[in-house]
Design a binder for these strands. Structure first.
Lengths: 201, 201
DNA sequence: CTTGCATTTTACCGATCGGTCAACTAGTAT
DNA sequence: ATACTAGTTGACCGATCGGTAAAATGCAAG
């Protein structure tokens, strides 16, 4: 591991907040290079294309969440339904802290990118879909355990998990439209009222 | 009303499907002019800027919906909660028919634009927020009537309406990530299970 | 000392971006 | 006939886009 790989991480460090706070199309390679103190040719030594860069950014965000709030929230030591509360809380506080620093509600980078690029780039769409699929399984495992524990009545855990994920993304979308993370606080807890019944056999 | 105003509508006709199927940044004025058989200078005779164009596009979509499916769905003759079913159905069939023609799930242009531009352009954000606010009040009126009719137990109709709107947008987002409108069919009906309780006084 | 490889720099590519401007056309009203 | 105006044209602006290629640099192993 050379110190030189530091260049790659400087590029990522410059790209991450930009893609999060603006959009895929609105962030240029040149700007990233300037911010990283790098020449454009050097950028293309580490990333074959802009798409590869944003995929690396997606991975970084994904890892950050998986090892951070998500790991805390989906702690097996917590009662299942409390994990969902925890996740909503974490999302709220995160968005709120970003707004305090940045002045704006930036929302979920996965949702942002999905709506921007998924009709134009199937590879990016697949990448983002994989993120959502993983998130959904965290929810469905939790719901399975809640049903097993008798905390909630039996339901279609797969579909309800997907519904909860959709709801979370939707609330973040609306909060972004209002530039106000407080909407997450007001609407977040209702996620637990969502139910998709089991289909009769 | 001159025939010449036909130019303006040709511009809009070219712009609408493009902004819907791609993104704000990815659609250029030049492309729109070519598709409309128009010179660029002519475009700027009718629209002061790209932003004004997209606002006109937003208005057109909004009017289309308001006079179409939304008017049908929120028909006072229907029992309140059936109106919501109707709206979900309409959204599903619309997305499905677009996919059949276009090959892709395009989603909701208001949601798409919101996530793309709302950190970068407060005027567009305000415009989109107004769309959502109007949509929310359709939901909340419906819920008010459902509560009054005793169809559903009392709840916070304002917040529940907002939750339902968020859920709808979220489901469309996830469906777009999967490029599959069927998700709307599977998850849509669960919208009626959402509840935000009245705050104790 | 040399070979080889990873990294970086510099200059460049054609294309496109949103937007401007002055000249021109056509129809209308006086 | 003339003057005014809405509409249209085509050329043009500087800036930026994503990406490329070749030469230079630094470093490490033989």
């Amino acid at each position: 591991m050379h110190i030189a790989t530091d260049t790659r991480s400087r590029i990522l460090a410059a790209a991450k907040p930009r893609f999060h706070s603006r959009s895929y199309a609105n962030v240029g390679i040149q700007e990233i290079c300037e911010s990283a103190g790098i020449q454009k040719g050097s950028f293309y030594h580490f990333f074959p294309s802009k798409r590869d860069l944003v995929m690396a950014v997606i991975d970084e965000f994904s890892d950050e969440w998986a090892n951070g709030f998500v790991a805390e929230a989906f702690d097996p030591a917590l009662p299942p339904m409390e994990r969902i509360d925890y996740l909503i809380d974490a999302a709220y506080f995160w968005q709120k802290s970003i707004k305090q620093v940045h002045g704006r509600m930036l929302g979920c980078i996965f949702g942002n990118l999905t709506l921007e690029v998924s009709t134009q780039d199937d590879i990016l769409r697949a990448k983002l879909l994989a993120i959502f699929t993983r998130a959904k399984s965290r929810f469905s495992e939790t719901l399975d355990q809640a049903v097993a524990a008798g905390t909630i009545a039996p339901l279609d855990t797969e579909l309800t998990a997907e519904a909860m994920l959709a709801y979370l993304e939707g609330v973040i979308l609306l909060a972004k439209a209002q530039n106000d993370p407080e909407l997450l606080y007001r609407l977040g807890p209702a996620i637990k009222t969502l139910r998709v019944e089991l289909k009769a056999a």
